[in-house]
Design a protein around this nucleic acid. Structure first.
Lengths: 244, 244
DNA sequence: AGCGATCCTGTGAACTTGCTGAGGCGAGGC
DNA sequence: GCCTCGCCTCAGCAAGTTCACAGGATCGCT
């Protein structure tokens, strides 16, 4: 329970093999904690800051590989923080968090430098996926594979959102895609419905738990139908994706 | 972890392969930051100066390959800066930024030497495209291709603004052209509506977000109608241009 | 076998997202 | 000054997606 590395086949690291350093900037402690936990679980080293000024200061000390930045901070706007941070770290990629309905929450320029953003409420899988995409682009290294996830004859390209089983390509909706990505990032590992709900659905989802069963059912129809099944149910425990 | 190169197939570099050096001169910090971010994303090394005097000084030290110069600076006029800069760097190409309603004869004088200008508010794609055009003329090199972009049987000549699909030539309006250029510079890559809006529309565009859908619809009518579609929608994610 | 718990999936409603026709507005050409 | 063209808004429709619900199937246990 001490080591936090090599839990998964696809841990990203810095070029020298040391852990990715992430800086989370959000003034909402619960949300920041949620994010920090998820990122630590990726094997990354996480710091967090509550204000724009604190963020700029921490960035100087930490020299982070990636920054998660709420655009609505008590003291500075996202663009201001970005500008000041870019003065010392011109290339660090930033993932912005914005409210969905912040009416004309001017996002202008936020993605101009290849940065990205997600709207609240988000799912952790999505945040992690986008951070990984940003890191891949700026040269963090993974043991072996690149933007493709492969389990058995199942293949997923995270960048283009394409999925194949063998030679057939498979069209998935956004939610189905995220669910499958979660499975593919955790092959041969049993995932409970609660875990799935926490990772794949938005953090404020308040619906029925059987939504997971429903989507597993959709997925099976698309990836297992007429083939050797890869998605298995462990009654009372959860689901597992196993190579055929 | 600091490398910003080789993200795209068409990165411009200096003759010896080192990154392009750009100097951005504008007294408006947000705008300068926006430009710097976009140019860094092109893989260039960017410095910026807030005043004419600072610009002249930085130019001497930096020996830039290209300069982006606001004609309205607090201390000197564009012409003055240009003159002094040309004393030390007679050939460096300059892209001027001017207000829409600037006096035209002034600009005529400024661009006489093969330089170029764009009016504010501009779109990042336009600025980048013009800078690339200036650099091409002064001998910066790109890996392989020249002023032509090719994706599948789609072909675009950036200099002449001509576009062909197969043997048919296609007439596009200015906005359609920029949108397609953005797609063609990022083939097989999913582009979100936000990214597109950020890059292709003017930075102060405050209108309806569905303008992107509208123009994608126009583009499809012109390049995909009656053919194998190349422009695909990924619901909830964005659009992607894929060779047929 | 029988029983409860668990899981699967068809149905349909609500909602979201994307597409496109109609039309207003302004700039530029004639 | 009129006409054309390009840019854009708006609104309605179409299609795709998400989700609740509930009845039926399956499983594990006794």
């Amino acid at each position: 329970m001490t080591t936090t590395t090599a839990r998964r086949p696809d841990v990203l690291t810095r070029a020298d093999g040391s852990p990715i350093r992430a800086l989370v900037v959000d003034d909402e402690p619960n949300l920041a904690e949620l994010l920090a936990t998820a990122l630590r679980y990726e094997g990354w080293q996480v710091e967090h800051a509550l204000t724009g000024h604190a963020a700029i200061r921490r960035a100087k000390e930490l020299d982070p590989d990636v920054v998660v930045l709420d655009v609505m901070l008590p003291d500075l706007t996202g663009l201001e923080v970005l500008g000041r941070m870019r003065a010392t770290h011109p290339n660090v990629p930033v993932l912005f968090l914005t409210a969905k309905d912040a009416v004309e929450d001017r996002i202008a320029g936020l993605t101009a430098g290849g940065d990205d953003y997600v709207t609240k409420p988000f799912s952790l899988e999505e945040v992690v996926a986008r951070l990984r995409a940003l890191l891949r682009r700026t040269g963090a290294t993974t043991g072996h594979q690149e933007a493709q996830l492969v389990v058995g004859d199942l293949r997923m390209d995270e960048d283009s959102h394409e999925v194949w089983r063998g030679t057939d390509d498979i069209h998935l909706t956004a939610t189905e895609f995220e669910l499958l990505r979660y499975f593919m990032r955790n092959p041969r590992r049993v995932l409970s419905k609660a875990q799935i709900l926490d990772r794949v659905w938005q953090y404020d989802f308040g619906g029925q738990a059987n939504i997971v069963e429903l989507y597993v059912s959709y997925l099976r129809r698309k990836i297992d139908k007429g083939r050797t099944p890869m998605l298995h149910t462990l009654r009372g425990v959860g689901y597992v994706l196993r190579p055929a």
